[in-house]
Simulated scan of single mutants.
Amino acid sequence: MLEPGDERAGGWLRRTGPVELLRALRVTDGAAERLRGMSAVRLEGYRLRAAAAEPERDLAAVAAVGGRFVCPGDREWPSQLDDLGDARPVGLWVRGRPDLRLWALRSVAVVGARACTPYGAHMAATLGAGLAERGWVVVSGAAFGVDGAAHRGVLAVGGATAAVLACGVDVPYPRGHAELLGRVVRQGLVIAELPPGAHPTRSRFVLRNRVIAALTRGTVVVEAEYRSGSLVTARQAQRLGRFAMGVPGPVTSGLSAGVHELLRGEGVLVTDASEVAELIGDIGDLAPERRGPVLPRDRLDAAAAKVLDALPYHGLAHPRDLARAAGTSTDETLGRLYELHSLGFVEREGDGWRLTRPAPRNGDARRGGP
């Protein structure tokens, strides 16, 4: 009866309760006029919708596809959705066996462009699989592109995923993802704010994003243009106090321009599942330390490294000159030179020392000739 995200109607529902609100909109005894802010034009629109509402029919339709209706106050209701205030869903239609509330407690959204690049699809699938392997429920919108890739990545490793739709849970949209949605129902959850049989509209897609943002601990945007609906999800997550994360892409790609704008603000840059889990997870969910390869020179102590740095690239050097350049005594320098010699860094020629010459490559040896 109510459109998603209708805060005015949500306020009426909060103050009067669902039974009284439906009665006020269906009778003509003046009860509707007691609803604050109700103009005649608006009243007529709500009355038309109320007259067409058939809750029993909707409940029968969702039961026919093995689903259920979950509303505030139910044991399965995710209380984090209450953060939306009067824009909170009236209830959610759910297909799938898992408990919605329990799954939502440890969930993260992965969203992005529909017309994504191969890079975006790869990153979404990799993130989905990696988060699922770490015990996270991956939530997305089942759209083409990044959403579908994230769901498939989770399903490929037998993980947990939930699809939040902008239509009824019995409507396969987009039609090209009918098989994917069937797999999600069998392995996870399909969720919708609209009743069975409802079809999506442009505004419903935008409003669906607030549910994704509120349901999860954080939102990861993989690819998004400046006006992408995925950025709406991330910014809604920020307003609700959730984490907003972005996966960087080429600066020459318009599909990453929106993500980079998010990262210039309050968004957090992430590159893999471990970094996402570290940000939104519990104490101890740490990403591995990032560093380049350890080189033999890295293992030298400070004094030996100074002596090694003092040696010229070409030619010999006397220990006295090296001591002056390294700022150490001659005896200390000699001791470090013998240490460096044992490690293969330097060679001795008479009273002088030089850097060890690199071994000739096979090609160089052949070119030397007899």
Rank of each mutant, 00 (worst) to 15 (best):
F144T: 03
A317V: 11
R101C: 10
A257P: 08
L269N: 13
S274W: 02
R15W: 03
A304L: 01
A244C: 05
R36F: 01
L25N: 07
A87H: 06
W12A: 02
R97Q: 15
E56N: 00
L316F: 06
E347W: 13
A162Y: 07
L35C: 11
K306S: 02
G96R: 14
D74N: 04
T328M: 11
E44Y: 12
L131Q: 04
D298H: 15
A24R: 15
A304V: 00
A287I: 12
A132D: 03
P55C: 00
D86G: 03
L279S: 01
T216H: 10
T161I: 00
E7C: 05
T356Q: 13
D321G: 08
Y313E: 15
E266L: 01
V157Q: 07
F144A: 09
I212H: 02
R134W: 04
R36L: 04
G135V: 06
L255M: 09
L240Y: 01
L343I: 01
E339Y: 10
R235D: 12
G45N: 06
D58M: 12
I212M: 07
A273S: 04
E349W: 15
L322C: 08
A104P: 08
V138K: 00
S342K: 08
R264P: 10
L155D: 03
M38D: 05
G141Y: 02
V41H: 10
V206K: 08
G112R: 04
V19T: 09
P200L: 05
D351Q: 11
V184M: 00
E266Y: 01
V94N: 00
R361F: 07
G130E: 13
A52T: 05
V222L: 12
G130R: 06
Y338G: 05
R97N: 06
L81I: 14
A214D: 14
G369M: 13
V157A: 04
R242M: 00
H260A: 06
S39A: 11
R42D: 01
G168N: 13
A305L: 12
V157P: 08
H177T: 09
G176L: 14
A302E: 12
R290K: 12
S79M: 00
T216R: 14
P118E: 15
G267A: 06
L316W: 06
R299N: 07
T161R: 01
G128R: 02
E20W: 08
V110I: 00
R204Y: 07
L25R: 05
G73A: 11
A113W: 04
T271N: 02
T161M: 01
V268D: 01
V62E: 07
G327D: 03
G284D: 02
G120C: 08
A166W: 07
G66R: 12
G37N: 00
V137P: 00
C71D: 04
H151K: 13
A257T: 12
G66T: 10
